[in-house]
Nucleic acid binder design. Structure first.
Lengths: 212, 212
DNA sequence: TAGATTGTTAATCGATTAACAATC
DNA sequence: TAGATTGTTAATCGATTAACAATC
């Protein structure tokens, strides 16, 4: 029925959401695509095109209501329906992510944390007691979490991911430096620090040679 | 002289690098664009086009030498010239990043860590003693680091970034949930956990409604 | 009503894919 | 030499930008 919205558009939505949130917090009630485009460093055309993939949220001659538009984008992103998530791997990174992240405003709810390290099992992070990885199957079958955050060693990612898919997990936020083989119906979002560093390395190189 | 290489190409380079590294480690010496394309889930055309932005690294009738190609991509990314970096903000996230990341193989060298929390100052992470943020100006002027990893509260990012630019920092890896205003000659790479979560939220929503 | 700004169609631009001659 | 596969040019596809009629 509806045509599929392109990846590029989706990738821009969180940024719109963030800007609208800031505008809203600073008390601005309405904004035109032109004003917003200037603030964000994009074209007004792009903003209007992007938004009109989902419907007409503006009003001719007026612009967009900031609060309303933010709400609509939130709905498009599905932030209003909390999806249950578990964290696999409670090392430095896993714990830091759990502590630093506001799950609820982003559409998720963290309901379990797992590790294989017996020293960690039983301790708590964000009021959640870390469980032994051996209990994960039962936990998933009982509580049906939708998403798993993977912060396990690179060598274990694929194995763990496959297991969790078997148990019923539908989506991954993957921090481990390896890729989860693309399976049908499984959503994956990777955060690879190494890739970011390498891109930055390239950019620095480019910026310098430009000057010479 | 050379035409600017598009962002899309650059963004794919680290992934090529990773795959070649894996191939190399598993003892594979040569690979054709077709084989690689199948492994990576892209087109062979794209691989050849991407690589030929930088030069002809292959051989007709043979394909690509895995090790050589990996090396060349490493050079393109600038991984062979270590760039000095400092970490600003030694909270959970900053520390976890410092501990988990291999800087040298990604073209960087971590030479200093800063925080404002007096309780953290003096303790060490990865053999680096955390310094007080008040010392950062002197440190930068003396040691001339090129890049700063920002893991400070959202409310402080812009202020800190502007200060560091004044002191001579040329690039940022930014974890804080705000954007650094794009300045000429300054390279920025953002890692926004919130954006990743929201994109995943959207994907989950889409994957489900597709099934219905 | 006049002015502003949207939603949307059309034009342009760039990126991806296909095709093939060059050549190992 | 014959087969394979690159490097590169041409064709296609999609995304971005421009333009403008609709309308608040």
């Amino acid at each position: 029925m509806e045509r599929k919205v392109s990846e590029s558009v989706i990738n821009r939505l969180p940024r719109y959401y963030r800007y609208l949130n800031e505008l809203s917090k600073s008390g601005i009630e309405r904004i035109s695509s032109k004003e917003l485009s200037q603030k964000m460093g994009v074209t007004a055309s792009q903003i209007r095109q992007d938004l009109n993939c989902f419907g007409g949220f503006g009003q001719q001659g007026y612009g967009y209501n900031v609060k309303l538009l933010q709400e609509e984008i939130g709905k498009i992103l599905g932030l209003n329906t909390p999806k249950t998530a578990i964290l696999v791997g409670a090392g430095n990174l896993g714990r830091a992510f759990a502590i630093n992240t506001s799950f609820e405003p982003r559409g998720f709810k963290l309901i379990g944390i797992f590790d294989i390290d017996k020293n960690k099992v039983g301790t708590t992070v964000k009021n959640i007691t870390i469980m032994d990885y051996s209990e994960i199957k039962d936990f998933i079958e009982k509580n049906k979490p939708v998403m798993a955050i993977l912060a396990v060693p690179r060598t274990h990612v694929r194995e763990v991911a496959n297991e969790l898919i078997d148990y019923g997990i539908k989506a991954f936020l993957n921090f481990s430096y390896a890729e989860i083989s693309q399976t049908d119906g499984i959503s994956v979002e990777n955060i690879h620090f190494s890739d970011s560093l390498m891109r930055l390395s390239y950019k620095i190189k480019e910026n310098y040679s430009k000057d010479i």
